[in-house]
Design a protein around this nucleic acid. Structure first.
Lengths: 178, 178
DNA sequence: CAACGTTGTGTACGATCGTACACATGGGAT
DNA sequence: ATCCCATGTGTACGATCGTACACAACGTTG
């Protein structure tokens, strides 16, 4: 039977789920594909996550935390000496220019909340965290508007394959900041 | 055998697909569910649409055209006497307050382009049409920015269940318009 | 050290899916 | 009138899915 003692089994399943979504999309997410990717038997994924929604919630939360760390590590966003619009436009450019799989993965999980109410609190927390962080540089209304505009600009790039235009992003972001 | 002569078969299948996506989401879309909804045999859906992507392209295109008609019928958007930000914020409020299924359906198909390259040209056309329409009231850069901001605000409402705030929308839209 | 509950494993069932294919039918071109 | 091909129908196959369940192993608690 060769039972494996694996105290981090649950975490490894989440990591595997994120890899699966990154490579195949949510459409390719199943208990079986995750089990194969994590190298655990089928029963193990169904034991730790009764439904796929549970698994997606865990994956979205982990993606959100990873995103928050990346944001936090970018000091320029908090430095009052920098221009906020310039900083945001530059950061978005780096993010979109990097690993496309990661960007698509995060947006796909985030947007999945549209049809899956279980994901909405996590998605809301994600957006709220980013807005809170921006609130250190501006007021709350502007912070929310910036989050909306950032999302909209990213979606235009991702959905329509229009190349990212940092100058355009900087310009319109600046308009929103009073 | 009772073969039915049905010259609008293809169109009825698209209509059925839109109803299925509206009620069950893209996850519930299959040749079989659409065939049942359209009251046609399975072979008929696979004949008219070889892949589900083909069917989604047709559905997205039809949704886009319906959306364009709704926009066009709203005269205020073109009337230079009205305030554009106020008009857009009011229109978004009506749209979001109306049939939620329709809103979710349109966004779900639109966002599906993230992972399905076949949908991207249609999604791009959708966004471009709206931007072109807005260009009659403002410049091209502002029009694109407005589309992005509208998308971002709608997503915040749909994903996080924050109630729509028309005053907030009007305010930030106004900032983008030079 | 014994009982128990958590964690892990293997397998099976019924449902659903995309796909393929053989065949029927009838409109329109010739 | 005849032929051809787009259109429509029915069925079957293999793959995959969620779910359930019986059982094994191990850590913990008493």
């Amino acid at each position: 039977m060769a039972r494996r003692y694996d105290p981090e089994r649950r975490q490894r399943i989440i990591d595997a789920a994120i890899r699966v979504v990154g490579e195949e999309g949510i459409a390719g997410l199943s208990h079986r594909t995750v089990a194969a990717e994590a190298d655990v038997p089928l029963g193990s994924t169904t034991y730790h996550f009764k439904t796929l929604d549970d698994l997606m919630v865990a994956a979205l939360r982990q993606a959100s935390e990873g995103f928050a760390k990346v944001i936090a590590s970018r000091g320029g966003l908090e430095d009052p000496e920098t221009d906020l619009a310039t900083e945001l436009a530059a950061w978005m450019g780096e993010w979109l220019a990097g690993d496309r799989t990661g960007v698509e993965l995060e947006y796909e999980l985030y947007l999945a909340a549209l049809r899956r109410p279980a994901l909405r609190p996590v998605a809301a927390e994600w957006a709220q965290d980013l807005a809170d962080r921006l609130s250190r540089r501006t007021d709350a209304v502007t912070a929310r508007a910036l989050v909306a505009l950032l999302d909209g600009i990213c979606l235009q790039v991702l959905l329509t394959e229009v190349p990212y235009d940092e100058g355009y992003a900087r310009e319109v972001l600046r308009r929103v900041i009073p």
